[in-house]
């Protein structure tokens, strides 16, 4: 497999007021690579992935997604967002639309897919995350795990080339975490390029090609899972690992 560079971040900085939330971040993600980002809260990990589809603006450095640099040009931002799917901690399904309408909204309005075709594809993805029987319900009628799987299906329906997960299981009851992680493992096995912010270290061990540890806006450590868990270099990583494992 030839390596194709999907995301490139060079010397990226971001501030919230005076707070330096991203401090000289450099990151390269190849096609089909799975990156897990972990770190204490407030370390900038969510901000980092939110910069990739420009839900947050970086202030210095450059971010290149699929060969397009992220600038203020709203056309190219919208195009990149079509290629980059995102799954949120709070699911963020649209409560006024049925699950099926949630999932077909973007294909119909952004991709201009004919409605019938969009529905076919939506049902296919809903089946893949095993909630095709819930297609005509509203989000409020579903459990948290089902909602998050619907949100994943919604992102997948745009046939993105990259998937971003921002703590996808943090808002879920323990018994529902597995059903969401299973979907994500399946997605990883299918060769999707993924960046996942999560505290699920079991998932990281099983799926990640690379684990990135962030603290205070910096990438402290970036290693393969084996190295990361067995030979962490920095003290901060060791402290973090001792707290969560």
């Amino acid at each position: 497999m030839t390596t194709e560079l999907m995301i490139e971040m060079n010397n990226v900085h971001k501030w919230f007021g005076d707070l330096h939330v991203l401090n000289d971040v450099n990151l390269k993600v190849n096609k089909s690579e799975k990156i897990v980002i972990c770190g204490p809260s407030g370390s900038g990990k969510s901000t980092l992935i939110r910069c990739i589809n420009r839900l947050e603006e970086h202030q210095r450095g450059e971010i290149i997604v699929e060969g397009t640099e992220l600038t203020n040009d709203s056309r190219s931002i919208e195009r990149i967002r079509g290629e980059v799917g995102m799954v949120f901690q709070q699911f963020n399904l649209f409560p006024h639309l049925s699950i099926l309408d949630n999932v077909t909204l973007a294909p119909i309005w952004v991709r201009k897919t004919p409605k019938a075709q969009a529905i076919d594809k939506a049902m296919e993805y809903l089946k893949r995350v095993q909630i095709d029987d819930q297609a005509y319900k509203y989000p409020s009628q579903l459990s948290g795990g089902q909602q998050q799987r619907a949100a994943i299906a919604r992102a997948l329906c745009m046939e993105p080339r990259i998937m971003l997960f921002d703590e996808p299981t943090s808002a879920l009851d323990p018994e529902m975490i597995k059903e969401v992680l299973d979907v994500m493992v399946g997605l990883a096995e299918g060769g999707m390029t993924m960046i996942v912010v999560t505290h699920e270290m079991g998932f990281a061990k099983e799926v990640a090609d690379k684990i990135i540890f962030m603290d205070e806006g910096q990438i402290v450590e970036a290693k393969s899972p084996d190295d990361f868990f067995n030979n962490p270099e920095s003290e901060r990583t060791k402290t973090f690992l001792s707290q969560i494992l």
């Binding site: 709203s74 195009r79 079509g82 799917g85 949120f88 709070q90 919604r154």
Partner: peptide, 18 residues
């Protein structure tokens, strides 16, 4: 409106008016 609704819509590539 919760901020997440804006973000979810934006993250799918919907334009402002859509």
């Amino acid at each position: 409106m919760p901020k997440g609704q804006y973000e979810a819509a934006q993250s799918m590539g919907l334009s402002y008016w859509r």
